[in-house]
Every structure is written in C-alpha cells, then in structure tokens.
C-alpha cells in the first residue's frame, strides 16, 4: 500500500507525456523527424504549427491511432506500443477531433452513452459519469435532441462531453475552436480551463488561434516535422517577438530629429511614430530620455502571432540560405 502510494506521488512529479526521438515515415516521406518533448501533469500544453507541420500525425500517434516508426513515448508512465499498454493508455486519454464524429441520427444522450460503454464501466458508474459531463457542459436542455439538429457550438460541447465521459487524465484537442463564433469559442475555452483546474486534467491542444496558445503553460512550435521552438508563452515572446513603441511627440519635427539622432528606423502615420524595441525595458529608457517632448505613447507587447510568423519566416530564410550555398557549389 505504502509503496503504491509512494509510486503514485512519484508519478505526480513525472511528466505525464514523455516523447523521445519520435519519428514517423509515410513511405518515402518523413512527416515527423525525431522530436522530443515533455508535458507536465495538469498543465495546458499548446502544440503549434502551420498546416502539414506534423501536428496531427503526432497527436494520432500519441492517441494510439497511428503506429510510430521509431522513438519512445510514455503516457502516464506507460510505454506506448504494445496492444495491452495501448489499451491502458486509451483509458486515460480523451480526444476532441477537428471534425465532429458523433452520430447524427442519435440523441445527445444516446451518443454519449454508446461511446461511454466502450470503456467497460458498470451501469452505475456510467450513469454517474453521464450526470457529471451533462452538468459540466450544460447539456441538460439538449440531452434528448438529435445530434444533427444542434448548432455548431452545441455540437462542440457534446464532442467534449464524449471525450471526457471516462474522466481521462489527458484531454487532446485538435483545433477545437476552428470555425466557431467568438462567443462559443469563449465558452469552449472557459470549459477547457475549468476542466484543467477542477479535475487537474492535462490539456494537450493544437490551435490556429495564437491568442489561445498565449494562455498555455507551455508551447511547442513545429515546422516540417521538427520542433523549432519551445517554452512558456512569455519566454517565446521574449526571444522571438519585439515590442512596439508608438509615440506622439509635441512637435513632429522634434520627434523625427530625436529618432534619426538615435539611428532608429521607424514608420509614421497620422503623426504617430512607431518603432520596434527589443524589450520593454529599452522602451522605458527611450521614453525617459524623450519625456519633455512626448505628448502620448503606447507600448504594445509582442504577441504570439509575431512569434509564430517570425519563427516560420526565419526558418524559410535559413533554408533559402542553404539552397543558395548548395547552388553556389
């Protein structure tokens, strides 16, 4: 008993997902080129990348739907690969796919109970879980409606309910908010965060919306099968995005003079000068120095969008360089 307890404690500090050197080949094409990363238990983990970066392939491998070519994966301390282990892993993961995969002709309740019965619960356990997800996702009013009659946002709620009917430790969400209206997106997000907080569920997410990624605890950015950046949103922004400083001077000519004096490149529109500064601290120094001539100012922190676009551009730049040196030889 004690040993078990101790082991459990140990597991809590271990990463819930541990991927080492993951490779996936499709015939001659290499979709995932030896990536490694870890996900902390209870964290919100965002997986970013352009289309075709290898995100979906990686998720499908983690969810035991696709066989890996090589590398090791541990989920909840269990090595993915053998049939028995995969079945154990499946019990501890839930997935919300990009498209809705429930049955149009069945009601909300029927859909969820039919999928829920695949996890080997007793009748009592299943009913308890159903009441739990019904409450968590506010399905009371639509439980008897046919799935096909639901709105996009309602469908997404039911999809999430299906994914957590077995109270998994990890919830994978593959672009869960794509194509939803802003209000529904917000609701889906609140739900995801609530699940993370209240059930200590680990959330593994891919998304195209950078502002969604910005609230993650940890971000990994993939490009062409490789990880090109990883870290907290804060550290990524720090390293890969610059802040924007917009200033309105008391007199335009003075402003132009001050900026040119410093040798800073800038853009000017409607009397507002905009310059890029590497950090907020540097912005502060410039503002202090120019204080007497400033009428108004604004500092805009670099966004995840900037990080994403910048990283993707940088990589393209590098490749072009390599190609160039090849042709030079």
């Amino acid at each position: 008993m004690n040993i078990y307890k101790a082991e459990n404690e140990l597991n809590k500090t271990k990463p819930i997902i541990d991927v080492q050197g993951l490779v996936k080949n499709y015939n001659t094409h290499q979709a995932v080129k030896g990536i490694s990363f870890q996900v902390k238990r209870g964290s919100l983990f965002a997986f970013l990348g352009t289309n075709g970066a290898g995100k979906s392939t990686t998720i499908e491998i983690l969810c035991t739907l696709l066989e890996k070519t090589s590398g090791t994966i541990k989920i909840n301390g269990i090595s993915l690969g053998t049939r028995k282990n995969n079945e154990l892993i499946r019990k501890s993961i839930g997935i919300v796919f990009q498209q809705s995969l429930l049955d149009e002709k069945l009601s909300v309740k029927e859909n969820i109970l039919h999928r829920g019965r695949l996890y080997g619960f007793t009748k009592q356990e299943l009913i308890e879980n159903w009441h739990f997800v019904k409450q968590a996702l506010h399905l009371e009013e639509i439980e008897h409606q046919q799935y096909e009659t639901l709105s996009g946002g309602q469908k997404r709620r039911v999809d999430i309910a299906r994914a957590i009917i077995h109270k998994p430790d990890i919830l994978f969400l593959d672009e869960p908010t794509t194509g939803l209206d802003p209000q529904t997106r917000l609701f889906v997000w609140d739900t995801i965060k609530q699940l993370q907080k209240e059930l200590n569920m680990t959330i593994f997410l891919t998304t195209h919306y950078m502002e969604e990624a910005a609230v993650a605890d940890e971000i990994v950015i993939m490009k062409e099968g490789k990880i090109i950046a990883a870290g907290t949103p804060h550290s990524l922004k720090e390293h890969h995005a610059s802040d924007q400083l917009s200033i309105t001077f008391l007199e335009e000519t003075i402003g132009r003079h001050l900026l040119l004096e410093k040798g800073l490149s800038f853009t000017m529109k409607n009397g507002i000068f905009t310059i890029n500064v590497p950090s907020t601290l540097e912005a502060l120094q410039l503002l202090k120095e120019w204080e007497p001539s400033i009428h108004a100012f604004e500092v805009i922190k670099g966004s995840m969008d900037d990080v994403f676009i910048r990283l993707n551009k940088e990589e393209i730049g590098d490749e072009q360089l390599i190609e160039f040196s090849h042709s030079a030889q």
Partner: peptide, 14 residues
Amino acid sequence: ETKVLADFLTAPIT
C-alpha cells in the same frame, strides 16, 4: 469514410 472509426479506436476496443 467519416473517421468515426478513429473515435471508436480511441476507446479500449480492438
């Protein structure tokens, strides 16, 4: 064709 199979296979069944 609609990938519902994938959803089934995320549950512990063969």
